[in-house]
Amino acid sequence: MSPILTQHLPALESMKKYPSKLFYKGNLELLQRPKVSIVGTRRPSNYTRQCTYALANALAKRGVCVVSGAAMGVDAVAHAGAGAENTIAVVANGLDIRYPAVNKELIAGIEEKGLLLSQFNDGFRATGWSFVVRNELVVALGDSLIVTEADLESGSMRSVEYALKMGKKVFVLPQRLDESLGTNKLLNEMQATPIHNIETFASTFGQSADDGIQKDEFFYFCQTLPTFDESLKRFGDRVYEAELEGIITIQNGIVRLN
Rank of each mutant, 00 (worst) to 15 (best):
L187Q: 13
S231V: 02
D210F: 15
T41P: 12
I250Q: 09
K16C: 03
V160M: 07
A54C: 09
D210L: 13
D216E: 09
S231N: 03
N258L: 05
W129D: 14
V91E: 07
I254K: 14
G83Q: 08
N93F: 04
V64R: 01
S154L: 13
N258H: 10
L186C: 07
A71C: 13
S37W: 00
R33K: 12
M190C: 02
R42Y: 09
A140S: 15
A163T: 13
R234I: 14
Q207I: 14
N252G: 12
G69A: 11
V77F: 07
A56S: 15
D216S: 09
F219L: 12
A84P: 00
D75T: 08
K17N: 05
E241Y: 11
Y18P: 08
L106T: 10
V74N: 09
Y18E: 08
R125Y: 08
R158Y: 02
L152N: 08
Y99S: 11
G73N: 03
D96P: 09
Q119D: 11
T87W: 07
D178S: 11
L55A: 01
K185Q: 14
V39E: 06
F131G: 02
R134S: 12
T193L: 14
F23K: 11
I4N: 00
A80P: 00
T200Y: 07
L31T: 06
N57M: 00
Y240V: 04
Y47T: 03
L28Y: 01
A82V: 07
E179Y: 01
L257V: 06
I4C: 02
A60N: 10
I198Y: 03
V90F: 01
I97T: 09
H8Y: 13
G83F: 07
S154R: 10
P34T: 09
G26C: 01
